[in-house]
Every structure is written in structure tokens, then in C-alpha cells.
């Protein structure tokens, strides 16, 4: 545990040394201390901007989990829906979601909802795919066994299918957690009046690189919190007790 932490600190230290003695101007490479100092600049409105961006990321992500898992459930309950809609979903997934950004702005206008929608669009598909996959991973013999003891479809789902799919759902959620961050920031770049991506564009005009660095760090932090929450939930539900 100590080793990786030390290595992280070492990287920060090297960053500080290169910035101080590397002869690079601050607008190219601000030092860690200069970066942290921007936190105390009230014009940056860190709390508001970070809150907005976090809301977009978490909102888009949760929406994708809710709708993604539900659609995967429908697929697992009806072979017809799967056969009909899965190819369509695969085709839709080939559209680069980022390219939809300007369109989504036309539909929803600037703001939180738009960026949430972009985050949703980009992280929805991995969740559907992994969940559908997980729900279909049930041995036919297990179904026979369940049927000989009069198990209902709902009981089979609750006691066998869904718990069995959880590790898959979580691996999809981990991929999506990272994507959601990218989606929300792209949305803010394309058009917004708030958020960390917006802040970056604002300070870029003045070559305030330190603030841009700090914004990137805050965005990363939001991603880490989301990923950590997913990993914690996974540990609580799947990995604890030596199950997986």
C-alpha cells in the first residue's frame, strides 16, 4: 500500500522540481503549488462549477445505469425484443456520441440537462451490453433444476439470474463511470455557461494554465469518486465473502 502512494507523491515532487527549475514559463507548466493556489481565487467559483459538473456526470451515469439495466432485463425476458432491438442498438452505438453534442444542444439548449444527456449517451451502451450478457449466462441445467422444484420466472431471476449478472453489471458500470466524465466535459466544451469545462475555456483566453490544471484535477477527482463508489458497491454486493 505504501509503495504506490509514495510513487504518486514522487510524481508530484518531480512535477514541482521540473516546474521550478526546468525553465518553462508558467503558462506552459505551472507547478503543483501554483496549481493549488488557484483554489483560493474566488472568480473561479470552484464549488459551483465542480458541483455542476459532478451533477452532470452522476446524473448521466445513474440514468444510464437505470435505463441500461432495464433494457437489458427486457432483452432477457423476451427473445423477440433482443433479436429485434439489439442490432439496432449496436448500429446506434457506432455513432460517435461526441458528434451528437451540437445536435443535443439544438434539442435541449445549453446547460446541465444537455451535458447529462451527452454523458448518458456515451455510457449507456456498455451497461446494456454487459448486463444483457450477464443475464444470459445461466446454465440450461440450472434452469432444469429450478423447474423441477417449481421455480417461477421471477424466483429464477431474483435468486439466480440477477445475482449471477451482478459482476457483469459492475464491470460495465466501471467502464461507463470513466466514459460519463468524458461525456459531460465534452458537453461543456461545446456549449455551456457553467461547469469545470466551461471554466477551462474561460481561463484559457488569459493563458491561466494553473487554473486549467486545477480544473483537470477536479474533473479527475469527480471521476475517482464515482469510480470509487461503484467499486465500493461492488465489493459490498459481490466480492465480500469470497464469492467472486
Amino acid at each position: 500500500m505504501a509503495g504506490p502512494i509514495l510513487l504518486h507523491l514522487l510524481v508530484v515532487l518531480i512535477w514541482q522540481l521540473v516546474a521550478d527549475y526546468g525553465g518553462l514559463p508558467t503558462y506552459i507548466l505551472p507547478s503543483p503549488t501554483e496549481t493549488l493556489a488557484t483554489l483560493f481565487e474566488p472568480r473561479n467559483r470552484w464549488i459551483e462549477n465542480t458541483g455542476i459538473t459532478a451533477l452532470e456526470i452522476f446524473g448521466g451515469f445513474l440514468l444510464a445505469v437505470g435505463i441500461g439495466v432495464t433494457i437489458a432485463l427486457l432483452f432477457s425476458w423476451s427473445r423477440l425484443t433482443l433479436v429485434l432491438f439489439m442490432p439496432l442498438l449496436v448500429s446506434l452505438n457506432m455513432i460517435p456520441k461526441v458528434a451528437l453534442g451540437p445536435l443535443i444542444i439544438v434539442w435541449f439548449g445549453y446547460g446541465v440537462v444537455t451535458n447529462m444527456a451527452i454523458a448518458f449517451a456515451i455510457c449507456f451502451f456498455p451497461i446494456v451490453i454487459t448486463t444483457a450478457r450477464g443475464l444470459s449466462e445461466i446454465e440450461p441445467e440450472m434452469l432444469y433444476l429450478a423447474r423441477t422444484v417449481n421455480a417461477s420466472k421471477w424466483q429464477i431471476f431474483l435468486k439466480i439470474q440477477f445475482p449471477g449478472a451482478l459482476p457483469y453489471i459492475f464491470s460495465g458500470m466501471k467502464v461507463s463511470a470513466v466514459l460519463a466524465v468524458a461525456g459531460a466535459i465534452v458537453g461543456e466544451f461545446i456549449g455551456s455557461e457553467k461547469g469545470l469545462g466551461y471554466l477551462m475555456l474561460q481561463v484559457q483566453i488569459n493563458l491561466d494554465t494553473a487554473t486549467m490544471f486545477m480544473a483537470v484535477l477536479m474533473i479527475t477527482l469527480i471521476g475517482v469518486v464515482l469510480y470509487g463508489a461503484v467499486a465500493l458497491l461492488e465489493w459490498l454486493l459481490v466480492k465480500r465473502g469470497g464469492a467472486a
Binding site: 423441477t148 417449481n150 445475482p163 449471477g164
Partner: peptide, 29 residues
């Protein structure tokens, strides 16, 4: 639907359940 027990080539145990809870599965159904 009540009086048959089955054993297959694979044990088909649910890996997230303890041994006791695996044995109890038919009773739950």
C-alpha cells in the same frame, strides 16, 4: 414439481451463496 431431485455433471452451485444456502435453494423455490 415437488418430488424430483436432480444432480448434473456440473455441481451448478451459486458462487455467491454459502454451502448451506446452496443446499437450501430448492426449499426456497
Amino acid at each position: 414439481h415437488r418430488h424430483v431431485g436432480m444432480v448434473f455433471q456440473q455441481a451448478l452451485l451459486l458462487k455467491w451463496r454459502t454451502v448451506l444456502d446452496n443446499v437450501l435453494l430448492p426449499a426456497e423455490f
